[in-house]
Design a binder for these strands. Structure first.
Lengths: 352, 352
DNA sequence: CTGAAAGCGCTTACAG
DNA sequence: CTGAAAGCGCTTACAG
């Protein structure tokens, strides 16, 4: 494997000159010298060692993205958005699946710090875990200290995301849309409470009920893990306690998918007997039958902007927060409630 | 950001001693000195610069994985398998989505080479594109030259994968299973012919027909892109030319998903009117309705073994090829053909 | 326009 | 057991 010295020798110039020609330096070099260097580099198939380069700069051209799980389509879309934008700007992207495990997350952030990553982008929601947050904060402080950027795409312990969506507003719109279809008893299957994004969506559910002039009812709310299985379990919970509802919203699409499966197993027709809605609009939502009503988040764009945000920080700027729009997408899994069931309503006592 | 020199100063020792304590060196250091160094490092929140470390070694503790598209669940599963195994061995994983684009693939491999990645794992199938293959080969040669490993998980221009599955045998088993259900006219929607894996699966389809003693019929084979849309288009093709069949297999699950959608749009019942099968058994396959019959590939395991294979090469070994087993998974999208349709058969003339 | 020299932050023979 | 020194492969003031 040849080094810059080999190229210099073959071209009959100094390593400094080779560096000037081959790097993005604007330093003047005579045309004949330049050509000799280019030829020599090609002849030796020379590719500069980025490790050596990175050592001289304050940081390496690498962007780390911390996701919960890259096999979750929500995160895959975001990661792809970061990668597309980063590759165009000649940055490498390292995607790390933390499984929302404190140890794993910390060790990844430490690793990114150790290679002097230019930026670390936290794609997933923050967790209410003081010990983890303290450890991670130590590393992110160090990353900022060497000139790196830290970007968050979801709510976290230290506040709102740098680039994000309004989860509460999105969920409120969804519930409102369900209300507009005529549903009066809208159940909700929430996710793990220690995730900040779960809290926001639950608040949105409540806000949506209020907007639809429906009374909140604790009997219509259950909880499960943020997964297909969690959604099925949350639905089981509702059913086990005999809750009656004509529509059910889930805290994310994966959970709604689990709900759809469980409903089919129990012979409950969707949307005939009950309407089902998810959140995120991952690709699978439009691929299942019945296709799933959801709230579309611009995930690829979120990733793309996350990178651009980091790039601006690296350039010394102080970019401001952005909130990307969400959109309710009504599909085959939701419909008007059956007339018989609709009468089962409990409108709010006082209509303000 | 503190360096090893800062730690040495605080501990009152030389940088060499700090290095011996903090790296995985087995060099003897007195217990009191060791403790002073550890304390100083902790006090300064010292994290060694991996860039500097990597510069001294022949390569960095980084594994690059080239996938087609990380948002494709097939690749996400493999990437996760590599990552889980690599993280356990303290390697970073860089996943690169090439979009099967020659320029993009070459630039990623070059990038991995420039940071002296310990290994590059090609997760996707090779493409029959001599120019691309030559450029990539130049880089992989260089990677091997500095001591890195190159691992392939799918068939490629230079032969069989290092760790892989038998695509032809898997598809043959699927078609055979369809035959065992009573299907005599089994259509096939193939993928882009320049992908080696597509060729293997098509060969498997033919082998499966032979095993089921069915005559191949070119009118029952069409082609589409390796995507949801491609599957729908391939099915349209079959229908447009008036092909009659009771079952249809697709070259992968994504395509089968597209076929399922198109069939539903046309009011053709699955599996009542036609049985549908995919290949890969991505997660979505079991989440859609009707759930999709497919051939399960141990994708996570494939990724895991891909890393282990690389690790053995890095250790100086010459690990041998592995072929992981596949398994036909029959689900709701396939059933026996309707009696009326079944008579539409054309058994092979000569039953050997 | 070109080159010699210092230095990025580590590790590792080489001395002691 | 400990340290001084060289060196990994680049880039960049500093001289000329």
């Amino acid at each position: 494997v040849s080094s810059i010295v080999d190229v210099a020798r073959l071209a009959g110039v100094s390593p400094a000159t080779v560096s000037r020609v081959l790097s993005s330096s604007t330093y003047p070099v005579s045309e004949t010298t330049r050509q000799r260097v280019v030829d020599a580099a090609r002849a030796l198939d020379f590719v500069p060692n980025e490790l050596a380069r990175g050592l001289l700069k304050s940081h390496a051209r690498v962007i780390g993205v911390i996701v919960h799980d890259i096999t979750d389509p929500y995160f895959a879309d975001i990661a792809r958005g970061v990668e597309d934008a980063a590759a165009a700007a000649d940055f490498l992207v390292i995607v790390c699946s933390s499984d929302r495990d404190a140890t794993r997350e910390e060790s990844y952030v430490r690793l990114l710090r150790s290679i002097r990553a230019a930026a670390v982008v936290f794609a997933g929601t923050g967790i209410d875990d003081p010990a983890l947050n303290a450890a991670v904060a130590r590393h992110t402080d160090a990353i900022r200290a060497y000139g790196g950027a830290v970007v968050r795409l979801s709510p976290h312990a230290f506040g709102a995301p740098d680039v994000g969506v309004d989860n509460a507003a999105g969920m409120a719109s969804l519930v409102e849309a369900l209300g507009a279809l005529g549903h009066r008893r809208i159940a909700y299957v929430s996710g793990p409470e220690q995730l900040f994004v779960v809290r926001d969506r639950l608040a949105g559910y409540r806000a949506g009920l209020a907007r639809a002039r429906l009374k909140p009812d604790a009997a219509l709310v259950s909880t499960g893990a943020f997964t297909v299985e969690g959604g099925a379990a949350g639905l089981d919970d509702l059913l086990a306690r005999g809750a009656s509802f004509t529509a059910v919203a889930f805290a994310n699409d994966l959970m709604a998918l689990g709900g759809l499966q469980r409903l089919a197993e129990r012979g409950i027709d969707v949307p005939g007997d009950v309407s089902v809605a998810g959140f995120d609009d991952i690709r699978t939502a439009s691929q299942v039958t019945p296709s799933l009503t959801s709230v579309r988040l611009p995930l690829h764009e979120l990733g793309r902007r996350g990178f651009l945000h980091a790039e601006r920080i690296l350039a010394g700027g102080r970019p401001r927060r952005q909130v990307l729009p969400t959109e309710v997408v009504l599909r085959a899994s939701t419909a008007r409630p059956k007339p018989g069931l609709e009468t089962d309503s409990r409108p709010m006592a006082a209509a303000s």
